[in-house]
Design a protein around this nucleic acid. Structure first.
Lengths: 341, 341
DNA sequence: GCCCCTTTGATGTGCGCCCCTCTTTCCGAA
DNA sequence: TTCGGAAAGAGGGGCGCACATCAAAGGGGC
């Protein structure tokens, strides 16, 4: 049996090809009754437009843009690299992908960058901020017909089509569970280092972490959060201070970047083996120390998956194609020494 | 700038469209010197054929076949379901996917089923067996021009194009690490239940598990392997026996299916909270007991990912298209209560 | 110089759909 | 009855490539 084509639809609907085309592409000038007939024929035949013929005929390229935080940590660099790789793969599918950098913490700058994309692109993937201007900029883009997905960090009450990233509260809970079980029944203090309490994902991770520590591990006491600004040096300072002030520190959770600082502090203190250290994001560095044993577990979100997923979602939106939710859900990966890739 | 097309290549190579076509599709009757010229033009222009135009013009459907074990456990059922879902998604990309069932343990039957596919399909994904007949059947298929990928379970020395599945030795090591750390320093026995020691993946998991337990956890003693035949009842018997014979049992690792049996035995013994239980494969059942706490961790391979990856690899092979290794690597997922989807 | 064979060119058709233009038909209002 | 606009039909060109056919040009052997 050959494919069912527009011809077949036209025939069974008893109309001409032109009319079917008008219906399919929502062109005006078709009687409601006729529209109905055509749609019935489509349903009856189970007609699905040939993606290849459609894209070929339409001849238009899709133009997407990724807006990423500038000059930042290993994870973001990995993400950008994966975006570029993905761009390479979809280039021969008539998809062009651009990348812009914007300062992470500057909501206004991010909003401005987004506004500047109006009219120039079909879709945008943005590492967002929970900031009113950003939300408004996203909503403006959506209103102007641009598809927007948020990446890694969401803009909760905006009209973005999808959020491509993990549930950070659950990530925090996961870290706590692992840490709690890895300390093996010992009692003591647990330290948490965040990048900045202005970052929504860091806050959420902290909340999840707190929840589980206080509920499930009565022997552990969570110390007040320290801010490390995602910077190795600063993180090392606060980690060293934590280690010095608390001889009974049994666990450390670094919510953000700057794992190098923690490793350095642990090494300097000579307590790397005694303190359970849970980190985020699998990088060459964290991978190395996971294997060495300084880091006990890494909570990860796969930047390659995120880049591809965002791209797929943007394409699907353009083509009004269905989405495989299972494929697009970003997992909270747990890596220990034995299952790192 | 518009796409570079065959026209452009022909022009810069100084030959006709027909000749470029001959080179591209490896048709005979072109002088080596000319081939060279054309390929240079292609390289120079960075020409890449338009996937959509190609597929449309070729007009041929790809026909793939999945050969799965029959009447079996929840994981295999999930895998099959995901294969069917994937089939639905790629149906409008001119890809037809068929599914056949074969008895898992019967190498000859599997080999026969594979032989029967010759000439009927372009590609095959098979849950293989490490059996000489199977290996030969795979090699025959490959020799006859059919692309073969193995799925979940490999046929190591065959000529299959890819193996879509996890490293089972690493999975075993991962289970051991988690179990060892979760027992929190207690000393005692550890039990391992496998489906059958004839299954390669089960053996590999066992080997990995043994390695890590003996190397990293001197306080733990691994008991001799028990076979549960992936069947709830039988698994319950052996688990109950283990629990009864060893009051100091602190951990259980179920390498195969039949988690229901272990849960039942643990519940009956009243030691569900004391014995750390590591299982394989996230199913509705294991998910429930992970949340309840009977199961402490689940090692998983994502059947949806495997179905999609196998399909993508088969398509890529047909189109001689590049492969994104990062996308196709199947991860060893670790799920604990807090990061289950 | 003739013939044959290899190499190349020229050209056409079709894949399934989009998009545009130009009729033709039909229905209701004036 | 006439007229106008809405609804529908008809047709064509094009997207970039695959595939087939036929003709022309080139080169070597005799």
């Amino acid at each position: 049996m050959a494919r069912t084509t527009l011809q077949d639809v036209a025939k069974t609907a008893g109309v001409s090809l032109a009319t079917v085309d008008r219906v399919l592409n929502r062109r005006p000038g078709v009687h409601a009754r006729t529209v109905e007939r055509v749609q019935q024929a489509i349903a009856q035949l189970g007609y699905r437009p040939d993606r290849f013929a459609t894209r070929l005929a339409r001849g238009r390229d899709y133009h997407f843009h990724f807006v990423l935080p500038s000059g930042s940590n290993a994870f973001m660099q990995a993400l950008e690299e994966r975006v570029r790789v993905t761009a390479g793969y979809v280039a021969d599918e008539r998809v062009r992908i651009g990348v812009t950098h914007v300062d992470v913490f500057d909501g206004e700058a991010l909003a401005a960058a987004l506004e500047g994309l109006q009219g120039a692109v079909d879709g945008v993937a943005v590492v967002a901020l929970d900031h009113p201007s950003v939300r408004e900029a996203i909503d403006d883009l959506v209103a102007s017909g641009v598809t927007v997905v948020t990446l890694v960090s969401d803009a909760p009450r905006s009209r973005r089509a999808h959020y491509v990233g993990i549930d950070n509260t659950a990530a925090g809970r996961t870290a706590a569970s692992l840490l709690g079980r890895f300390v093996a029944g010992r009692k003591g203090k647990v330290g948490l280092v965040a990048g900045s309490m202005a970052l929504r994902d860091h806050i959420e991770r902290q909340i999840g972490f707190e929840q589980v520590i206080s509920r499930d591990f009565p022997g552990l006491t969570l110390l007040p959060v320290r801010e490390g600004r995602d910077d190795d040096e600063r993180v090392e300072e606060v980690a060293s201070a934590l280690l010095a002030e608390h001889p009974d520190l049994v666990g450390l959770y670094n919510v953000g970047a700057g794992n190098g600082g923690i490793v350095a502090a642990l090494d300097a203190s000579g307590r790397a083996r005694d303190v359970v250290f849970i980190a985020h994001e699998l990088t060459p560095f964290s991978r190395r120390h996971l294997i060495r044993g300084t880091i006990d577990a890494v909570i990860n979100q796969d930047p390659g998956h995120e880049a591809r997923s965002a791209t797929r979602l943007l394409i699907a939106e353009q083509e009004k194609a269905p989405i495989d939710a299972g494929q697009e859900r970003i997992r909270i990966d747990i890596f220990i020494r034995d299952n790192v890739p």
